[in-house]
Amino acid sequence: MSRPDIRALVLLIAGFTLWSAAFVLLYALQALGCAYDWGAAHRPILIGTYLASLLPLAWLALRRPYETGEPQTSLSRAALWANRAALGAGILVFLPVTFATTCL
């Protein structure tokens, strides 16, 4: 996996893979917190997870693309777009943890 073209291919799905993992994690934490009644700790845990999940997404979205030749140049430019989209999706989709009612 040390070839830049393969790494660019991995980058293409990296952001959204992280986004999916964060989605599953937040959904699970929401359900567990209600089932086991985490009370006042519930929302801070969710918000903490939300912010933590944005860090790797932001890192991917700000990465410089490989531009050492084809196909890695085109692939990693597409990957950059996809990873920025993943960051945007992460910010917007998980934003409700800051205000929406957790267990009703």
Binding site: L12, I13, F16, T17, W19, S20, F23, Y27, Q30, A31, C34, L46, A78, A79, W81, A82, A85, A86, A89, V93, P96, V97, A100, T101, T102, C103, L104
Partner: peptide
């Protein structure tokens, strides 16, 4: 290409919109 990838992943984050009336908490 980026849009297809985004769509492929996002489409896995939608399934509960068929279940909005089953009594799942509002945050979820």
């Amino acid at each position: 290409i980026a849009a297809i990838v985004a769509m492929g992943f996002l489409s896995f984050g939608l399934w509960v919109h068929h279940m909005f009336t089953v009594g799942i908490p509002h945050l979820a």
